[in-house]
């Protein structure tokens, strides 16, 4: 599991050009948006595109569940682990 969480952290850092942020700096359970890492709605869309490209996931920007999956690196890793197409 920690392998996948690290992979997702790396994906977040690279996709969102997070300068000066290392994998170790991201708390697996901290909120990704607003508090915690401080990402915004544009980042959510960008991450959706990246998750589609990397894992073949289709996430609806409107769906309430999407919000839950995007809560933290851990919730995202759980979702990716269960639903990835590649």
């Amino acid at each position: 599991m920690s392998e996948l969480t690290d992979e997702i952290k790396t994906l977040i850092i690279e996709t969102l050009n997070l300068e000066d942020v290392a994998v170790a700096d991201i708390d697996t359970d901290a909120p990704l948006f607003v508090d915690g890492l401080g990402l915004d709605s544009i980042d959510a869309l960008e991450l959706g595109v990246a998750l589609h490209k990397r894992y073949g996931l289709e996430l609806s920007a409107e769906a309430e569940e999407t919000r839950k999956y995007f809560a933290s690196v851990r919730t995202l890793a759980d979702y990716v682990g269960a639903h990835r197409a590649r």
Partner: peptide, 9 residues
């Protein structure tokens, strides 16, 4: 067929 939302913004 898809663009980066970040770049677009």
């Amino acid at each position: 067929g898809k663009v980066s939302p970040q770049e677009f913004s």
